[in-house]
């Protein structure tokens, strides 16, 4: 038996495109980031020069108050957007599943926000929230109420970007949960009904437990999306006022592209990746427990 046949024949070859793409666009850039994180990279004259600095960039990250602040801001953002979108997405999936009229329309309309480009979403929300020309303040003004600086104070700006992100990406959670909901064996629900459970009890004690693995998967997805979030904040608040909404992606952008400090930017990126991996591992560790409970 040839080595290739032992490796699985077509199954082996079909992986090649994926491996090549992953190597070129994933592994190679990642290894470059790892390399740069351990040095000082300067772009002088005609190209890049690398100077080994060991753990210096990581020590700097540990002492950088702005990095700590950005991590905290990102933590708040990720937790809030993940929890809210999971609750909303799950509720919408269950409600849509139970709808007796216009179910198809609801299913379609609910996913619309997710297919809009983030830049367009940002422009739409700028036109809603802008203190001078925004629709919200125009409405308040028409009603004789004082205008508000929706993006003008730290809490308001953070609430605004959370709201925009939840509005934009809850449909993804909805789709995942709704698919899982449709996969639940109807006999299980019928059995619950035969046992005398009403709709509320069935939802609480049967449906939601069975959805927990899907909810955990959606949670991982939303955590990663939350850490990657960039467009809306960049266009809506630019990290302000002050640094109230400077989430980690905005900070990394500034270090890498404005200060052209590639070494430190890489180190900050690596630390962030490490934190995301830890969170992902924790959620995956909890998943089997959830599955057993389900």
């Amino acid at each position: 038996m040839s080595a290739i046949r032992r490796l699985g024949g077509f199954r082996f070859w079909s992986l090649i495109p994926f491996v090549v793409v992953a190597a070129v666009f994933g592994i190679y850039p990642f290894l470059r980031v790892v390399q740069m994180a351990f040095g000082h990279v300067s772009v002088r004259g005609g190209g890049m020069t690398f100077e080994w600095r060991g753990l210096e960039n990581f020590h700097r990250a540990l002492e950088d108050d702005l990095f700590h602040h950005s991590l905290a801001i990102s933590g708040i953002f990720v937790v809030a957007t993940t929890v809210i979108s999971l609750v909303l997405g799950t509720a919408l999936a269950i409600l849509t599943d139970r709808a007796t009229k216009m179910q198809n329309v609801a299913r379609n309309v609910l996913v619309w926000p997710a297919i809009i480009a983030p830049v367009v979403v940002s422009v739409v929300w700028v036109l809603i929230l802008n203190p001078q020309i925004g629709v919200l303040n125009q409405a308040l003004s028409t009603l004789g109420l004082p205008e508000q600086g929706w993006l003008g104070d730290g809490v308001g700006a953070m609430a605004a970007i959370i709201a925009v992100d939840v509005w934009h990406w809850t449909p993804i959670v909805y789709l995942l949960i709704y698919s899982a909901l449709k996969g639940i064996d109807s006999e299980v629900l019928e059995a619950a009904s035969v046992d005398g459970a009403n709709r509320s009890q069935t939802t609480r004690h049967v449906v939601i437990p069975m959805l927990l693995p899907a909810i955990a998967a959606a949670a991982v997805l939303r955590v990663v999306m939350g850490v990657k979030a960039f467009d809306e904040m960049y266009l809506l608040t630019r990290g302000g006022p002050g640094d109230s909404t400077t989430i980690i992606s905005l900070l990394i952008r500034g270090i890498v592209f404005d200060e052209v400090d590639l070494g430190y930017g890489s180190a900050v990126s690596l630390v962030t990746i490490g934190i995301v991996l830890v969170m992902a591992v924790l959620i995956f560790a909890v998943r089997p427990i959830l599955r057993r409970r389900a």
């Binding site: 992953a22 666009f25 994933g26 592994i27 850039p29 990642f30 470059r32 980031v33 740069m36 990663v224 850490v227 990657k228 992606s249 990394i252 952008r253 890498v256 592209f257 590639l262 930017g265 890489s266 990126s269 690596l270 962030t272 990746i273 995301v276 991996l277 992902a280 591992v281 995956f284």
Partner: peptide, 23 residues
């Protein structure tokens, strides 16, 4: 699973590292 998780991490890294020098 470990491989998938590891590669997921690398993919996440790639997304973030996209900021590195290729934008």
């Amino acid at each position: 699973k470990a491989g998938a998780l590891g590669f997921g991490g690398l993919a996440t890294g790639a997304v973030l590292s996209g900021c590195g020098n290729n934008e």
